[in-house]
């Protein structure tokens, strides 16, 4: 059997299921080749060491993460204050503009124009009417 093929099968045997033929060839090769058996032992040892290897962050890792998240949260809140004010102002402004448009529209529909007197609501007042109105206000009751 080709030497490279034997080693390929050996490495693959750790990570995938071999076909019955491959299994047969590898087992046969392992019986016949002491170097291949040695290779298998060494790879098994490396893999065992890797499997049991554990890495650790420095103590207090989770606290450091949570601290960063809190800091980030505070930054978000700080950044949010002006943006909240801006959004509130925008709502008030849009409502105001809408109210003005509705008012002007109703004035135009009732008076037929948007001149100064119509806007002030004194377009149908003559001087006499105004005098009568004032007198009524003072002495009507």
């Amino acid at each position: 059997m080709d030497k490279n093929r034997k080693y390929e099968l050996l490495y693959a045997s750790f990570d995938r299921a071999l076909s019955p033929e491959e299994k047969y060839f590898l087992e046969k090769a392992l019986k016949e080749d002491p170097m291949l058996r040695k290779e298998k032992e060494e790879i098994t040892e490396i893999r065992t060491n890797l499997k049991t290897a554990s890495f650790r962050f420095k103590p207090g890792f989770s606290n450091r993460v949570l601290e960063k998240i809190r800091e980030e949260g505070n930054r978000v809140i700080e950044m949010d204050v002006p943006s909240q004010l801006f959004s509130l102002f925008r709502k008030v402004a849009i409502t105001g503009v809408a109210a003005i448009i509705i008012l002007l529209l109703s004035i135009y529909l009732t008076s037929g124009s948007l001149n100064k007197s119509s806007v002030l609501g004194v377009d149908s007042f003559s001087d006499d009417n105004l005098v009568s109105y004032l007198l009524y206000e003072d002495f009507g009751e």
């Binding site: 290897a53 554990s54 890495f55 650790r56 962050f57 890792f61 989770s62």
Partner: peptide, 8 residues
């Protein structure tokens, strides 16, 4: 944390 530590 241990799992992320192993990877990183």
């Amino acid at each position: 944390e241990p799992m992320v530590a192993n990877v990183v």
